[in-house]
Amino acid sequence: MTVSPTLTAPAAQTDPTGLFIAFEGGDGSGKSTQARLLAERLRDEGTPVLLTREPGGTALAERIRSLVLDPEHAPVDSVTEALLFAAARSSHVRQAILPALAEGTVVITDRYIDSSVAYQGSGRSLGAEQIGALNAWATDGLTPHLTVLLDVDGPTASARREARLGAQQGAVADRLESEPDSFHEVIRQAFLDRAAQTGEQTVVLNADQDPELLAEQILNRVRPLLQDQPMEKETTR
């Protein structure tokens, strides 16, 4: 007899002192660049920032990253893939994100739960609701104050992925990057559907524009949130 598993998502935690920002988007959207640029600008203004990524951010999560994205381990079945990402995220939240937020730090992460909902929920056809519940359970319901979704059309994203690999000698596409264009189109739509469901918590920006102009737009969306958070500026010792 087969029993369908169910997960009850916990109640969301009380907002910690710091500010939690997640960058989302498909491979080639430029989210890693924009996460870095936002971190640099905030640090220049004296704001304490933790710039991190998923999967990764802790020693354990980085080890999981090396396993789950390495093309040498292909094929990986969809459920195993989803569980590995959730395990890495659980470590990331408990060992890195929550401690930083408790100290009043701005945490900027390159990918978070929306990526699993898009890639495993839709891309791997495991179901957005099921993957969302799994990751809510893994993170104790921690959600970003703001999610920045960078949206770019398929051909542009594909060209960027190819250019990045071409610029890095010996670089090899990871397991997800190497999926066909049809897969990445499903991912793009899944991100947009997720953004429509989360309302003002997610801002969708056109990523096919000058990176500096895009960075300024993002900073303008973040500044009002900084004013609402009781964070302390860094001091010079």
Rank of each mutant, 00 (worst) to 15 (best):
V107Y: 02
P155E: 15
R160N: 08
V93A: 00
P16I: 01
R124W: 09
P10E: 01
S182D: 14
A215M: 08
T47Q: 11
R111C: 02
T14N: 14
Q201M: 13
D140V: 00
R237G: 12
G127C: 08
L83M: 14
L101W: 05
R223Y: 06
E24K: 09
S90D: 00
R89T: 03
L19T: 02
L69R: 09
P75A: 11
T58N: 06
E72V: 14
P75V: 09
P155F: 12
P10F: 07
V93T: 00
R94K: 06
S29I: 04
T105C: 09
L226T: 06
G127A: 13
A100I: 03
L214Y: 12
V79K: 13
T147Y: 11
E72I: 07
T2Y: 10
A102F: 02
E129Q: 15
G56D: 05
P230D: 09
I187G: 00
R43I: 11
V152A: 15
T33Y: 08
N206Y: 11
I21N: 03
Y112P: 00
A159E: 15
A163I: 03
A133E: 05
S78G: 08
Y112R: 02
P144S: 04
T202G: 09
V152P: 02
S158M: 13
A136P: 00
A86Q: 01
Y112D: 00
L225D: 04
P16E: 00
G28D: 05
S66Y: 08
V222H: 04
T109R: 08
L150S: 07
S32D: 09
L37E: 09
T109L: 01
A136Q: 03
L84K: 11
Q13D: 04
P180V: 12
L42D: 03
A88Q: 04
H184C: 05
D114L: 02
D228P: 00
E185A: 13
R194Q: 10
A11M: 08
P10T: 04
R237V: 07
T235R: 13
A61M: 11
Y119A: 01
S115M: 02
R36L: 14
I108C: 07
V117P: 00
E234L: 13
V93H: 01
A128H: 13
W137D: 00
T33H: 05
A138F: 03
P71I: 13
V107A: 03
W137M: 07
E54Q: 15
P180C: 06
S90R: 05
H145M: 01
T80R: 07
D228C: 06
Q130A: 15
G170R: 15
G18N: 02
S4Y: 12
G25P: 03
H145L: 01
T235E: 11
P144T: 05
F23V: 02
E72A: 15
L146F: 13
P211M: 05
V148T: 05
E54L: 12
T198R: 14
V68I: 15
P155D: 14
A157D: 08
V203H: 07
V204C: 10
A128I: 03
L225C: 03
E177H: 12
Q217P: 06
T202D: 05
R94L: 00
E232T: 10
L176S: 07
L126Q: 11
D140R: 01
A86Y: 02
Q168I: 15
P5M: 04
E40A: 13
D110H: 07
L83Y: 13
